[in-house]
Amino acid sequence: MPPCNVRGGIFFLGSKMTKMAQVAEPLLKVRGVDKHFGAVQALYGVDLDLPAGKVTALCGDNGAGKSVFTKCISGVYQPDHGEVFWDGQPVHIHNTRDASRLGIETVYQDLALCDNLDIVQNMFLGRERLSRYLLDEDDMERAAAETLASLKVTTVRSIRQPVASLSGGQRQSVAISKAVMWNSKLVIMDEPTAALGVVQTRQVLDLMKRLRDRGLAVMVISHNLNDVFEVADRIAILYLGRMVIQDDASKFDRQRVVEYMTTGGKGMKAAAN
């Protein structure tokens, strides 16, 4: 793909570019999203494309607006301005239910699992299957087992063990599998490897690649550049509420990413000029 970035919050990955690369309309297209909290402007006209079958890493320093932006997509916050297109159609995501209905699932940093419930119960939490007004445990257990097997989450010994007895990587795997179960098309992950050891991080990164290979769009927020470069197909960088650059991961190196994260790319612009 040709380089196509213009920094400063204005960025086209428009029709021309799309045709050139023979790439379909991105699954999720965000244009000009503003968000403020009282006097604090958190996002300024953020644009982002999340194509299917790609892992997009959203990077940025603390306070860059990563979490706010994520919450605007997942329905937790409402953007003040801006447009969101899903499969090319304009959509309004008013709450997390709307997001789920479209196929957007978010894996939160603190996992949002119930320690006292087992894996099956957690994976179906809020969407239990019933037969004759009672929980259909057999059906749910079967479906959960299929999903875990298809994602090759095989280290758990029993699908009926409480989540409290899982390791950090297994918990993260369950949280991600839970997000995938609902025919979701876009999975958003907030710092999925932040609390994990080496082996567990490996499990989670492999899982993310499997989601991508299934054709899902994946957006991952990460501080860890090792993980970003290992797993990301595209990198987007927020700096003080502005999207300063987004492009294929191959266009970046570590130093360039750090530069954009810490200065918004001012240094490089000066160098280019």
């Binding site: 699992l113 119930c114 320690d115 006292n116 419930l117 939490l125 809020g126």
Partner: peptide
């Protein structure tokens, strides 16, 4: 199930749409 979920992690239950 929701009663147990809230007792285990009320925030997780809320996020699950309960």
């Amino acid at each position: 199930r929701y009663v147990y979920a809230i007792g285990g992690n009320a925030e997780a239950a809320r996020r699950a749409g309960i």
